[in-house]
Design a protein around this nucleic acid. Structure first.
Length: 291
DNA sequence: CACTTGACCTGTCCGC
DNA sequence: TGCGGACAGGTCAAGT
């Protein structure tokens, strides 16, 4: 599910909802996804207060007063949903995509002292949760190799071009999906950015000009920013920290729009194919493949 | 080394 | 209605 805008939306929601709360108990039985022992959880999580919620790439870090952090990757179908004491759905009765929690997809249930809960739900179980010393978070394998944050001032077009060119012989779509090249792009924003820059996803990096890459850098940042503003994309499973859907998908130009008109070319239908092993959406007129 | 493909899981949808 | 296969927003290990 979640790419950078979705994870950032969850981070913002959790910052408002859980910072300052103290963990009362944790209910979990999922050794593969959350391998910490009950003893670890009792010592470093239960009784600890949430200090901050951070994000790096598509990973969330919940920093605790114990100097430990919960490090969480949602992968395809992970959700972090907070439920307060109020009745389910209060305030936004029809917005929630999910019902009573916990449910059959609940993998971890964090209870706070005020009786509210944070549920980690994950239908496909690809996601993971780790409890480790905050100081060790940058040393986990993923953090050591992940590329720069695309929305920082330091991530200039030149930085993007230099990094993406390291993947000279692969397709441009595979290159921008590679988390070591830059952080946070997934299948939705790869397709959206490539349409914006009018580049065919199958184009080899070596065949894409610097000026096209410069435009792609700008378009990727644009779609990421816009999506954060819209609360992310809900295609199937994604929900924010309150269980609500995001609305970027209503603004998408190609993703999940196969058979519909390209907004630049009325009468021309968006096509769907497979590139880099992923479902890929393109306009056959604005994204010409050049060999 | 660079690159591609399958595996990891569960659920849904679509055609026969 | 049932059944098989393809597909789903990510990443890694194992192939070539």
């Amino acid at each position: 599910m979640p790419e950078l805008p979705e994870v950032e939306t969850v981070r913002r929601g959790l910052s408002t909802l859980i910072v300052g709360k103290t963990v009362k108990s944790v209910n979990f039985d999922w050794p593969k996804g959350f391998p910490n022992t009950p003893a670890d959880v009792k010592q470093f999580l239960v009784g600890a207060t949430i200090n901050a919620v951070r994000r790096r790439a598509k990973v969330l870090m919940i920093d605790l007063s114990s100097s430990y952090s919960l490090v969480i990757h949602l992968k395809m179908t992970g959700q972090l949903v907070y439920r307060g004491k109020q009745a389910f759905g209060a305030g936004h009765p029809n917005d929630s995509l999910i019902g009573e929690l916990p449910d059959k997809s609940t993998r971890v249930d964090f209870e706070f002292m005020d009786k509210s809960h944070l549920y980690f739900n994950d239908q496909r179980k690809f996601g993971w949760v780790r409890l480790l010393p905050t100081i060790d978070v940058p040393n986990i394998e993923f953090m050591k190799k992940v590329g720069p944050e695309p929305l920082t001032d330091e991530f200039t077009a030149n930085v993007f071009i230099e990094r993406v060119r390291r993947r000279a012989n692969t397709t441009i779509k595979a290159a921008i999906l590679d988390q070591t090249v830059l952080a946070g792009i997934g299948n939705i924003y790869a397709d959206e950015g490539l349409w914006g820059a009018k580049i065919h996803p199958s184009q080899r990096v070596i065949c894409v000009s610097d000026s096209k890459l410069k435009l792609l850098h700008k378009e990727l940042r644009f779609v990421l920013e816009l999506s954060i503003e819209k609360g992310g994309s809900t295609d199937r499973n994604y929900v924010d920290a309150e269980g609500k859907r995001g609305s970027y998908i209503d603004f998408a130009r190609v993703f999940r729009r196969e058979g519909l008109d390209c907004s630049r070319h009325p009468g021309v239908m968006i096509e769907k194919s497979k590139v880099a092993g992923r479902g890929t959406h393109t306009c056959p007129v604005c994204q010409k493949y050049q060999s």
